[in-house]
Every structure is written in structure tokens, then in C-alpha cells.
Amino acid sequence: MILLRSPSRFLLQILQDRVLSGEKGMDIDCHTVEFDDVRYHIQFSMRNPKVMVLSVALPLPPPEAILYDGLPLGAIEAIKAAYGPVVQILDPPKDGFDLTMKINLTKLPPDEEQRNAILTQIASVREVVLGAPLKLLLKHLASKTVAPNVDKLVALVHRPNESFFLAPQADKVTIVYPMRFQDSIDIVLATSFLQEFVEARRTAALNNVPSCMWSPAPPLELKGVPADALNANAGFVTFVVYPRHVEGKKLDRTVWNLLTFHAYVSYHVKCSEGFMHTRMRRRVESLIQAHNVCLTCLTLQALDRAKSDAEKLKKLVHGGSFKRLSLKNEGN
């Protein structure tokens, strides 16, 4: 609930429906857009109800991020390794998309568990494609080497026209995120969120997690990067990942978490904004209630006062009769 899951819910739902629905099929032709401007185009045709054509468009890369044929480094190999014979890459991709794949659902393994695993894997195509270079670098880190022919500083695209930076070394990889937000309130919230985030890292229970720093100015690792890529309005976050963070099964999760760090922060900023509004609304309601109670009290008091005034008046009237009495007395 708090973390974003890597498979796209919609893709997974369509795939599972299709696998369970048996032979009968309908035409499906739909688009969806995910955070960070990743677009999907899903097509099923009547003729081949078991073949899905999935096109993926990646976020627009900034000039410093290097792509190979529109795809990140090692993406093709990663797709082949992840899906095997189920997926066939169509070249060239559909107009307006960066990758088009033909997914043959008849080639899925018959075992239900394996099949679901593959389907989930297909639904997380975003992680496979965008995370490919990151995975490659972290794999080398796990074996404590530096990947050959890799620059000292690698820029990877993660949002339209934005990238984050990796400085790979043999024993550690330093990852720097320039954080940018559109809205002025978001910037303030994100900044304080990140400061708390760094603070939370210092608690004893989180001793083994990658160390994490936040600074308003670009850290030293980013020397020589064009200034355009460094105009962050919510500071810079730096993670240092050691080989123990990418061992075995941890690798996939680390890749996904690093890849969606910005989305994670922005999701939390939005949610906390929402919760703050809820609180404010509740507060206003309770104040209004208190106000109303006061108002009723005051009205009651006023009524009381009016009542006592009326009684005084009565007394006065009574007094008048007293006077009359006294007049009578005088008369006597």
C-alpha cells in the first residue's frame, strides 16, 4: 500500500483475464499512461486471441542520458532473459513507441504458479526495460567489479527530461537524484520529507540499509555534469549502495526501488498533503462545533438574562403596585 508495486495492475488484469477466458476473444485496443510518462498500448485482435501486441513508450530522455536505438543499455538482452520464448520483439517499433513486443500466450508454462510469475514479469515490463542498465551496473557491483566500457558517471533517464546519476566503483555505487517538483507547496513538503527521510536512516533498526544523504547543493560526484541537469529545486539525494544490498534476490527490489525513488517521494508528498487536508477539515469541523456550542450557550444566557430582566420588570410593576399601596398608606 505504501510502496508502489512493480507490475502494472491494469496490464496484469488484462493478461490474467485473457489467459483464463479460454478460446473466445474480443478485440482490445487500449492505451494507458503511468507515472513518469510511461505509456502502454495493448492490442488483441480477433484472429489471434492469444497473441498480445504490447507497445511501450519510455519517458523522453534528457541530452545527458545515452540510449541505444531508443532503449536503455542492455534492455533487449534483459527482455530476452526475462521472458524467454513467450515474447518476440518487433523491429521497428510502432510509431510513437520505443518498444513493441509480441506476447504469445500459448507458450506460457502450463503450471499455474510459473505462469503467474511470468505474467507478473510481463506486467512489470517497465522495470525490465528502464531498469536494465541499473541492473547491469549493480550486478557488477555484486561481483565487486566495474562494468567494462562504462563511464565514470552514468546518467539514467527516469522521468521525462530528467535523469539520475550513478558513479560506479568496484566496492560501491553512488546514486544521486536531483529532485524537482512543480508546485511550490510540493517543494516545501518534499524538502522536509527528505530531511526526515535522512533522519530516519539514523535509527538503530536501519543500520544495514544504504546510507543516504540530502543536500541543497549538488554533491561532489556530479562534477562536470551540464548545469541544465542540475537545476533541482528540492535538493539532491545521494544513496551509497554496497555489494550486500544487491546480493541474490535483493537485486530486483533494489533496482525497482531506486528506479522509482522520485515517484515514491512524490506519492508520499501528495498523500501527506491529502492527510493534512483531512486533518484541517476535521479541525475546522470541531471548531465549528465548539463555536455552535458557544453560540447555544450564549443564546441560552441571553435568554436567561432576558428572563431575569422580565422578572425585574415584573418586580418593577410589582413595585408600582407597592407605590400604589404606599399611596394608599399616604391616604391613610
Binding site: 491494469f10 499512461v33 513518469d36 508546485d183 515517484a263 491529502g274
Partner: peptide
Amino acid sequence: QQCIFNYLRCDPEDH
């Protein structure tokens, strides 16, 4: 909030 972030998985600023 859940519809937008967890089901449609989109950034509300973009749409």
C-alpha cells in the same frame, strides 16, 4: 488517492 496512485498509477499533475 488510491484510485489515482495505486490503480491507474498515474501522476495527477500530468492529466
